[in-house]
Amino acid sequence: MATRRSFLAGLAALTLPMPSWADVGAPACLAAGKQGERFVLHGLSAAGQSLFAIDLPGRGHAAAAHPQRPLAVAFARRPGTFALVLDCLDGSVRHRLSPSEGRQFNGHGVFSADGRTLFTSEVVAEGSAGRIGIWDTDGFRRIGEWASGGIGPHDLKRRDDGSLIVANGGIATDPTDRSKLNIDSMRPNLTHLTADGHIAQLAELPPELSRNSIRHLALGRDGRVAFAMQWEGDPAEVVPLLGLWQPGQAPVLCPPRPAEAMRMRGYAGSIAMAANGLIAITSPRGGVVMIHDADGAHLATHARADICGAAPDGDGFLLTDGSGVMWSGDQTGLRLLSKDGPAWDNHLVALA
């Protein structure tokens, strides 16, 4: 009888609907922050409402959202000391991920379209050679790794065909204190990895911009890649911090007017691309968000202290700053959505 009951219980479990993001309020994005002495990961609605908050063991950076189930992988600020698989229904830690020996997580990850695989941005601790960790999400077992195509990979995005775009920042760092070791010999690049891990294309910047570390990515519906950079050269130099790339072609850099470029202080913290092709890049150092059209032409600059997080929201953007405020924005300006949140960290991760 016990065996029959177990069998029937198993059948009943199979008929139960799998939990989805709708079961936690259908958040628009995920964001890490600090509230008092607590580090947390929030699920946020497009109206700026916090739908859930889950404690983290330290400062978070970015997160990866499962495409169907209410699971999020929260990554530590690099060099990564934790990557936690969080159940956003009950706040529990489902799994604690550890990179292979001699590897460190590097702040970002992304799921495959079917949710069966997680890809993580990693470096070999000694030398910062890039790796993409591969994890089977049935138990979150590590099943392999690919070369990222460069030094110091940070952000990575999945294209509709299952291939990956990787932002290799080009900076080798000390594995303990993050000090930069190779500024004079940096070679940042964009790498297009096929769905089975082969390098389809590697695109580098011109030699005079070799100190422009490629850090963050946004993908358009047409397959274009928008990328944001951080300048490691002379602070007095004015360089483009936004670029566009269609794999198979050469990258195109998008310099704004020098006076506008100076407001970024050589640092783009996040990037997002709206449904209509508008592009936002933020600079917490400069306290500005820049809006560009689909071709990379500068449209507007809006000032807000410590603004950094950016995610698409229809034809505009959701934005967060370090004082706990969330905004909506486009080329016409910023509009307050919510305040009194945590000190938001660098990124807003869109779920759609």
Results as ranks from 00 to 15, higher is better:
116 R>N: 11
117 T>P: 13
117 T>H: 11
118 L>R: 12
120 T>N: 01
121 S>W: 10
123 V>Q: 06
123 V>N: 13
125 A>K: 09
126 E>R: 15
127 G>K: 13
128 S>I: 11
129 A>G: 11
130 G>S: 02
131 R>F: 04
131 R>L: 12
132 I>E: 02
132 I>P: 00
135 W>Y: 12
138 D>N: 13
139 G>E: 03
140 F>R: 03
140 F>E: 00
140 F>T: 06
142 R>T: 14
143 I>P: 00
146 W>C: 01
146 W>V: 03
146 W>M: 02
148 S>E: 05
150 G>C: 08
152 G>N: 04
152 G>S: 04
152 G>W: 04
152 G>A: 03
153 P>C: 01
155 D>S: 11
155 D>F: 12
159 R>S: 13
163 S>Q: 06
164 L>V: 02
164 L>I: 05
166 V>P: 11
166 V>C: 04
167 A>V: 02
167 A>S: 01
168 N>D: 07
169 G>I: 04
170 G>D: 01
171 I>V: 13
172 A>F: 06
174 D>A: 09
177 D>G: 00
178 R>S: 13
179 S>A: 10
179 S>D: 11
181 L>K: 12
187 R>H: 10
187 R>A: 14
188 P>C: 11
188 P>H: 10
190 L>P: 00
191 T>R: 05
191 T>W: 08
192 H>K: 03
194 T>K: 08
195 A>I: 07
195 A>R: 14
200 A>L: 07
200 A>K: 12
200 A>F: 11
202 L>H: 15
202 L>T: 15
204 E>R: 15
205 L>T: 00
205 L>A: 06
